[in-house]
């Protein structure tokens, strides 16, 4: 995983994967959900997604749901740890946006 992931800031890919797993989802479903959420801006390849899913499983931020899926495709769901990571990231992003807005606001009026 990228350096930014280790120190707490999530990459776009990881952030969107976590968001798309608030409901059980499989590989293709995750890709479609991310495409839809980002309005087609973020498209994940299978290599990127597979790497992200494995790392997130190792960190216990998501878990496989194969025993309940009943289908052929393996499904995943976010865990409590993963949810907390998303909440922390949202707070971090809010802080970034607010600080940015404060500084830029004066210049916008000019």
């Amino acid at each position: 995983m990228p350096e930014s992931f280790d120190r707490g800031a999530l990459t776009e890919a990881v952030y969107y994967v976590l968001l798309s797993l608030f409901e059980p989802n499989h590989g293709y479903g995750i890709m479609q959900k991310i495409d839809e959420m980002s309005g087609g801006r973020v498209k994940l390849g299978a290599g990127t997604l597979y790497g992200a899913l494995n790392t997130l499983c190792t960190k216990k931020w998501i878990k496989p749901l194969s025993e309940f899926s009943g289908g052929r495709k393996k499904e995943y769901i976010i865990t409590e740890l993963g949810r907390q990571a998303v909440f922390d990231e949202i707070e971090r992003l809010k802080e970034l946006a607010e600080n940015g807005e404060k500084i830029v606001a004066n210049f916008k009026e000019d």
């Binding site: 995983m1 498209k43 390849g45 290599g47 990127t48 992200a52």
Partner: peptide, 14 residues
């Protein structure tokens, strides 16, 4: 059939 790596970080890692 999109490329397997769509994100630079994961591509570099691979």
């Amino acid at each position: 059939f999109p490329p397997v790596y769509t994100d630079l970080n994961s591509r570099i890692e691979a």
